[in-house]
C-alpha cells in the first residue's frame, strides 16, 4: 500500500499575466509530435514543452515535486502520455481547480494523484513556486508551509483503492482475490 499523505515542493504553473494557468490541454502537456514514444523513461523530457513559459520544466522538476494549475487541467485528447510523462518525472501529485474528464480517469487509473481544490482560482495567488505542501488524500487536507490549511476534495472510494493498489491493474488483481 502506498502512503495516503505526501509532502513535496510545489510548482505553480502561471500564465503570462501571472494567473493560474487554465485549460492546459494535452497538446501543451505532451505534444502530438511525440505520440510515437511508448517507453515511459523517454517521455519525461518532453513534459510541458509546448506550454508557453514552461518549456524547460522537465529539466527543472525533481522527483517528488507537486504541480498546481487552474481550471480544466488536461483537457483535450485521451492520450495516456499526458499522464505518463509526469510519472516518468516522478511528479507526486497535480493540484488544480478542475481536470479534463478523460484526463482525470487516466490519472486515477495510473495511480497519479490528482487533487481538486474547488474555487482555487479565487485564492491561487497565495501559493508560490517553492512552497512546501503536505496533502492528505483521505481527508483532502492541504497544508501550505506548515501553517495554512486548505480543503480539497477527498479521494473517492474507488480512486483511493486504485491509488493504494498502485494502478488499475494491481487494483484488479486485489479485487479478484
Amino acid at each position: 500500500m502506498k502512503a495516503t499523505q505526501i509532502s513535496g515542493r510545489l510548482w505553480v504553473l502561471r500564465d503570462a499575466e501571472g494567473g493560474l494557468y487554465n485549460d492546459i490541454d494535452t497538446d501543451m502537456i505532451f505534444h502530438n509530435r511525440y505520440l510515437h514514444i511508448t517507453a515511459l523513461a523517454q517521455m519525461g523530457q518532453y513534459t510541458l514543452d509546448n506550454l508557453k513559459g514552461w518549456e524547460d520544466f522537465a529539466r527543472r522538476a525533481q522527483a517528488g515535486d507537486l504541480i498546481m494549475a487552474g481550471r480544466n487541467f488536461g483537457s483535450g485528447s485521451s492520450r495516456q502520455q499526458a499522464v505518463d510523462c509526469f510519472q516518468a518525472l516522478g511528479i507526486a501529485a497535480i493540484i488544480a481547480e478542475s481536470f479534463g474528464a478523460i484526463y482525470k480517469r487516466n490519472a486515477i487509473n495510473s495511480g497519479l494523484p490528482l487533487i481538486t481544490l474547488p474555487r482555487l482560482s479565487q485564492y491561487g495567488e497565495q501559493f508560490q513556486t517553492g512552497d512546501s505542501l503536505v496533502v492528505n488524500f483521505v481527508t483532502g487536507e492541504v497544508l501550505r508551509n506548515g501553517v495554512e490549511r486548505f480543503q480539497a476534495q477527498p479521494f473517492s472510494k474507488v480512486q483511493l483503492a486504485i491509488y493504494e493498489a498502485g494502478n488499475l491493474f494491481e487494483y484488479g488483481k486485489v479485487a479478484e482475490k
Partner: peptide
Amino acid sequence: AGIGRTEAAAVMAT
C-alpha cells in the same frame, strides 16, 4: 464516453 489507453486494455481483459 472516451477513456484512456490503460483503461481500454483493462476493459479488454475484464
